[in-house]
């Protein structure tokens, strides 16, 4: 952005920067429209101010949805992990177990993906890695039944946190979304107020479909926050801007690798400046 003048070319370049970060053409143009008006009214003259203005705008959007984590007054805090296929739910569940254990909390995990081949075994490896116990049944059993067991177990053992790993599902599959609703209701019947947090795990490489995913999972599962995975790649994850704007969901953590420690708290400033990096 070392240009002298604010002209159509520069605005187009900015549009492409935002689009290539998966912010989306509409969101990008809405942001730039505000800036264009200020340019027209000669409120901005210096091209170097543009990036700053966009960043401030984005920061405003991301910070508006910020709120503290909803930890249960009385343990366990129940967290439901949801999302489309392959987004990183199981891995993130393992990483969260490591994180919460590291904070001195006792963690129990629930293998509620009873559908995908070796999904339970995958979570069990994470159980061993993080020295957390797992509640499981056999493949093919009713996920709500596993959730039911796990909630009772978490209460009996006085676990601080129960992390429920669910099967990946496309938000368009109504039967599978109903299954998720059922898990959620089951949790609430065993422990009032559960699940306390419902985290939508979103792959940073996701494009514009991410918004529809967030809408549908919020409707069915009552999403309370986002986790953006695979940010260690070249994808920027810009669709979260549209998601937080529309659904007012905070971004809790980011995934930056495949190991237990590769989960970081979301930092909006860092996220925004990475949008402008090539």
């Amino acid at each position: 952005l070392g240009k002298k003048e604010i002209d159509a070319d520069l605005l187009e370049e900015l549009e492409y920067t935002l689009i290539s970060a998966d912010i989306g053409v509409r969101t990008a143009n809405e942001i730039l429209e505000g800036i264009r008006q200020r340019v027209d009214r000669h409120l901005v003259n210096d091209p170097s101010e543009l990036r700053q203005l966009i960043s401030e705008h984005l920061l405003g959007v991301l910070e508006a949805s910020d709120r503290p984590l909803n930890f249960a007054a009385e343990a366990p805090t129940v967290v439901l992990m949801v999302g489309v296929n392959g987004s990183g739910k199981t891995t993130t569940t393992g990483k969260l177990a490591a994180r919460f254990s590291g904070e001195g909390k006792t963690v129990l995990m629930c293998a509620a993906d009873t559908f995908r081949a070796a999904a339970i075994e995958q979570l069990e490896v994470w159980g061993q890695r993080t020295k957390s116990d797992i509640i499981r049944q056999s493949q093919g059993s009713d996920p709500s039944a596993v959730v039911f067991d796990a909630l009772h177990a978490a209460r009996a053992r006085k676990s601080d946190v129960l992390l429920v790993d669910t099967a990946g599902r496309l938000h368009t599959k109504s039967n599978l979304m109903v299954e998720l609703e059922k898990m959620r209701r089951t949790a609430g019947r065993v422990i009032e107020g559960a699940p306390h947090e419902v985290w939508l795990v979103l792959d940073a490489t996701t494009g514009q479909n991410g918004l529809e995913q967030a809408r549908k999972f919020t409707e069915s599962a009552g999403v309370t926050g986002l986790i953006l995975t695979k940010l260690d790649g070249t994808a920027k994850g810009g669709i979260v801007v549209a998601i937080t704007r529309e659904l007012n969901l905070p971004i809790r953590f980011i995934g930056v690798g495949e190991q237990a420690e590769d989960l970081l708290p979301f930092e909006p400033e860092k996220f925004i400046s990475s949008l402008f990096e090539a």
């Binding site: 290539s20 496309l170 599959k173 490489t205 991410g210 790649g233 070249t234 994808a235 669709i239």
Partner: peptide, 30 residues
């Protein structure tokens, strides 16, 4: 469901390996 990053990843895999075909998954969604 991949967004703009598809170009970067596909290009690099192709450059390194010379891919011969593509399988596009999760087309049962929207």
């Amino acid at each position: 469901m991949t967004g703009q990053d598809a170009v970067k990843s596909a290009e690099e895999f192709h450059k390194r390996l010379g891919i011969t075909g593509v399988v596009l998954t999760k087309m049962d969604g929207d």
